[in-house]
Write a protein that binds this DNA or RNA. Structure first.
Lengths: 231, 231
DNA sequence: GCAAAAGTGTTAGACGTACACCCATGC
DNA sequence: GCATGGGTGTACGTCTAACACTTTTGC
């Protein structure tokens, strides 16, 4: 059959907003753009969609290429299509965000991109509309994390409750009462207490926990409330 | 500057999922596809993106073309990019959903599409992946409406609380206790009571209300809970 | 023993849910 | 006067937010 007539094909790119958490700060992984225009400026990791690839597949490929990681939390954020967002050629960008365990990331995997982690508040100016995308991603993560247990994706397999609390505090940029937090999070039933303690951040030590993956999966779709309502 | 080399441009379409509410049922507006392939089959209203148009702009144009309406609630749902979703040519679809006041829609505006409203449960099979899109849109609307007052967009300027309640019942496909509903909705402060009553559905009559648009706008971003949590 | 972080306990009020009852009106 | 939907009232349990205190341990 003949193709659609009189239509203008455009390029479609997939960009990935990659978040990590080092135990102290929420961080963003960005690269130095390898091609013109704006070569060597900070940019999200992205690429054009392949001929036989769907959007999710392209996002996974791009993420794998930069980080070497499979099976990470990946969610489509939004498509961006300002006609002039890329000065060279009309390009629609479908943006994904990923939450990864930063400890699994190794700089050695693929150094050709000169990737670097920045604390969220210290991310440099990014090319095109990438900074806007990051802002939108943060909004969405705050929204999602208030209702669903997604922030566990940023933590290592074993983590402590104070670590988890600090992560929530980073994400919402506001202090949380630790007594209420502990109660809420243990009441959720999502955590399995380990016998070992993490002694690195206090004399007393904090118990490690693992995520109960079955319960996590089961509860994921239910509307939970992990943070208090903004005032 | 030269263009990006070795990349395959593809077509980008915008499809609109248009919801309306006639006082009894939640309905979907679909058209008979005018072009091959699958000509004359039921389809979402859509179109290819214009050269100097952004995605939101394209969605607005498409909506205007079919319904004659400006200024309607329109939200980007998701991008769909299965390589074979359109059998003729690789086409990425960026999908929007719209909530309109069905009374403002007039069949006369543009009859060339043979548009028709279907009750949500009676929507025929749609072309390509359009049925999947509609399902995703309903999920998102349920999600959004549980937290934000978006369903007002489906109602006329003046409406009664029983009407509003029925709308929520349609959207969540489950009965709501009218006494609790009334209290919750009036406590939100979003409604302004009118002096007239609607006598069409009961002897006693139900007071009309208007939406307090200022409060609506102010509260829109706060996480409200309009329905009870699913069990 | 002291500092510092981890963790348990308590309480008052807000909120959600369930349910009973009265109101207004046309027939 | 009675059927029908519209609307108010109440009571109880659960969740949340605010705040005080004890525990553990290295120095």
């Amino acid at each position: 059959m003949t193709k659609y007539i009189n239509q203008n094909p455009v390029l479609v790119a997939v960009d990935c907003i990659i978040f990590g958490y080092d135990g102290e700060h929420l961080k963003l992984l960005v690269i130095k753009r390898a091609i013109e225009p704006v070569k060597d400026q900070w940019s999200l990791m992205g690429g054009f969609i392949g001929t036989n690839e769907d959007l999710d597949g392209a996002a996974k490929r791009i993420l794998l290429e930069l980080t070497g990681l499979h099976d990470v939390y990946l969610e489509q954020l939004q498509a961006y299509g300002q006609p002039d967002r890329d000065p060279i050629e009309r390009t629609i960008s479908v943006v994904y965000f990923a939450l990864i365990d930063i400890n699994k990331y190794s700089k050695q995997i693929n150094d050709q991109y000169h990737a670097e982690w920045f604390e969220l508040k210290k991310v440099p100016e990014l090319i095109f509309d990438h900074s806007i995308m990051v802002k939108a991603a943060m909004d969405k993560i705050r929204y999602q994390a208030a209702l669903h247990p997604i922030l566990f994706e940023l933590l290592p397999k074993k983590f402590t409750i104070p670590q988890l609390q600090n992560l929530y505090e980073q994400v919402y940029d506001s202090p949380i009462d630790n007594r209420n937090f502990i109660r809420k999070i243990t009441a959720s039933g999502l955590l399995i207490k380990q016998t070992e303690k993490d002694k690195s951040s206090s004399r007393r030590g904090a118990f490690y926990f693992k995520l109960d993956k079955l319960k996590h999966k089961a509860q994921f779709q239910s509307f939970l409330s992990f943070i208090s309502k903004p005032k």
